[in-house]
Amino acid sequence: MSKTPQNATTRISTFVLLIIFLTLALSLTALILATTFFGQDNKIIAGYLLLIGFIGVALSTYVLFQIRKRVLRLRIELPPIVTTIECRKCGFKIVREFQRGDYIFKKGELCQKCNENMLITAIYREVKEKEKTAP
């Protein structure tokens, strides 16, 4: 589920993308033209082209970012789950990724140090908390 979703819900329409990139291209052309008109001392047209160019670039990039955000919003991030296996005799500890079939208090593999049966003592996920703003 942590992969980028690729179903119908998240697919971005090619038509929308085409319009966005067309607007972006036209806006960039307007900006280039504006510099040419500035060179020719035609400041009114240059000013209008500059305005149109900036608005076009801003709008198309905004829409692009919004689309990207929508796809990212659909991702469900799952932090890795770790399993701690402990030897009750010598205290030797192994921390590894969770595997299907693991459960707390399951007798696991043999201890590398004392050859005793090890025990799964913990299964959990670690979450990094965002900073809290409340007093």
Binding site: M1, R100, D102
Partner: peptide, 12 residues
Amino acid sequence: ASALKAFAYGQP
């Protein structure tokens, strides 16, 4: 949604 995976894999 996150519970689904936990249940499917048998995670606490």
